[in-house]
Design a protein around this nucleic acid. Structure first.
Length: 478
RNA sequence: UCCUCCUUAGCUCAGUUGGUUAGAGCAUCUGACUGUUAAUCAGAGGGUCGUUGGUUCAAGUCCAACAGGGGGAGCCA
């Protein structure tokens, strides 16, 4: 029986009234042969367990090492020391699991994030990762809560997909054919008709196309699942395996889409602020410490919590692509030739351009709409000007593109014409085109990279530190 | 994938123009102390200097390749 335990979070929230309590957790530090800082993952705050001198065996005390698992029963009393309101005066201590101090790699001190990345199986036991992953959980939960309250259906789109039409990037092949000697056709190409699914299949790069099938029946759906890109991207904001949220709404245009995206982002951030105040406070302090090493000019004006409050309490800026280009062209930054890449209408904005708009010009999240059709996907709705499509990107300070979405082309002829222009095989997407044949309606949706919003909320600068076990090129340990 | 920087003790790092036995703080271990907050004090152990090859009388130090990692860029979410 273990369920008589009280979690540290609950215990710390109560009053020290001399009541009995049993806690279980892992030792963070053992000071003075007398004070155990015990953490059970329910909160960043440790419980101070006090061991009366002489009350416990030396052999037991020797086994209270960093990260040993303990069961402690004792009396909850007001703390005599500073730093905590209450503490647990131990009556009995049971070592549930020993931890060899000479071999345990984490010390009660500050470790670099790079080092902890190589100890990803243990990094949850640190304050930073404890906070990050509790916040990650809250955001995931808030996402389901938000859509559920709005009547969206949670649709599970396939992980294995046969369509390569989305063009969202390089894909991971899924196959049971032998690598060393795959069956070949007469022309030497691999014969996938003999593969498991009878055709070439890959891991999904997006659930959007299937999402549209759901939206044109349920009205409003969302997906929230793993997504895979085999791009050789080595950056602080890319993963080969990441989680994406893709809502898709029928009877919805670009403006409705932008409104929903903004409301959604504010909702989930607000949820984390309400439910993870301690974790955010810890991360706020952590970032302040980190910024002390930087020159004053590079430090951020707002701390983490101020930044989140600002985002939650202010409307996102909304501009068209054309306006964005004008702002860039008229900026002093451009006139002084400080952009590495040139600016003109029709370019796919580089991250330096996006960063200028978001971090220098507006200093808040920006929704950019109506991009040139030539730099966007085939399924986006063509605007009447013949040049742009009803696309929408949300750019966030410090992260870049956090949301990419659009109103979809619901007119069959326009969609087919665009697919032809972009060399997208019609026959492969017959099922997608059927939505436009049978009761087509204006609809829209977007994709939000989950890890990027977790980065934004936690202030972690590397995406590998907001997913438990990151998959990146040349790296799939754990 | 491109540019750039890094790799020395368990961790964070120092190591001079190439020169004998490679250092510090923390951690660990031993002891002391005991209301501590990354406890403190004293002592001890701990190293194939990322790997391979080269230059040299002599390489942690110079050169090359490879591996891993950081930062920036591209691709994107």
């Amino acid at each position: 029986m273990f369920n008589n335990r009280i979690k540290v979070k609950a215990l710390l929230a109560g009053e020290p009234a001399g009541q009995q309590a049993t806690v279980m957790g892992w030792v963070r530090t053992f000071r003075n042969n007398q004070f155990v800082a015990l953490n059970d993952g329910s909160t960043n705050n440790n419980l101070q367990v006090v061991l009366e001198l002489g009350k416990f065996d030396d052999t037991l005390l020797k086994r209270i090492t960093t990260s040993a698992a303990l069961k402690v029963t004792g009396t909850v009393v007001a703390s005599q020391g500073k730093g905590q309101k209450l503490e647990l005066k131990a009556d009995t201590i049971e070592i549930l699991g020993d931890s060899d101090a000479e071999k345990y790699p984490l010390q009660p001190k500050k470790h670099s994030l790079e080092f902890l990345r190589e100890k990803a199986h243990l990094r949850f036991r640190t304050n930073t990762f404890g906070s990050v992953f509790r916040i990650r959980h809250s955001l995931a939960f808030a996402i389901h809560k938000f859509f559920n309250e709005k009547g969206f259906v949670y649709l599970h789109t396939p992980i294995i997909t046969a369509s390569d039409a989305e063009g969202a990037g390089e894909m991971f092949r899924v196959s049971t054919l032998p690598f060393d000697n795959p069956p070949r056709r007469e022309d030497g190409t691999i014969d996938f008709s003999e593969d498991f699914f009878g055709r070439a299949t890959n891991l999904t790069v997006s659930g959007q196309l299937e999402g549209e099938l759901g939206a044109t029946a349920f009205g409003e759906i969302y997906t929230f699942g793993p997504t895979f890109r085999a791009e050789n991207s080595n950056t602080a904001r890319h993963l080969a395996e990441f989680w994406m949220i893709e809502p898709e709404m029928a009877f919805c245009d670009l403006e409705d889409n932008a409104n929903l995206a903004e409301e959604f982002i504010q909702y989930i951030i607000r949820y984390a602020m309400e439910h993870n105040a301690d974790d955010l406070e810890f991360l706020r302090q952590r970032l302040l410490e980190e910024e002390k090493a930087k020159p004053q000019t590079e430090r951020s004006e707002l701390d983490l919590i101020q930044k989140l409050e600002f985002v939650v309490n202010n409307q996102f800026e909304r501009i068209t692509y054309t306006e964005a280009i004008d702002i860039l062209l008229q900026s002093n930054h451009y006139k002084k030739k400080k952009f590495q890449y040139d600016v003109s209408w029709g370019i796919d904005m580089q991250s330096e351009h996006e960063r200028y708009l978001v971090e220098k010009h507006f200093k808040k999240p920006v929704i950019v709409t109506n991009y040139p059709k030539d730099i966007k996907a085939f399924y986006m709705r063509q605007n009447e000007d013949g040049k742009t499509v009803a696309a929408m990107d949300i750019l966030a300070p410090g992260i870049g593109e956090i949301v990419g979405g659009s109103q979809r082309e619901e007119r069959l002829e326009r969609l087919e014409q665009r697919m032809t222009e972009m060399n997208i095989p019609h026959e492969e997407l017959w099922w997608y085109l059927d939505t436009r044949r049978f009761g087509t309606v204006p609809h829209a949706g977007f994709g939000l990279g989950f890890e990027r919003i977790v980065q934004f909320v936690t202030g972690m600068s590397n995406i590998r530190d907001v997913i438990a076990f990151p998959r990146t090129p040349k790296s799939a340990e754990f």
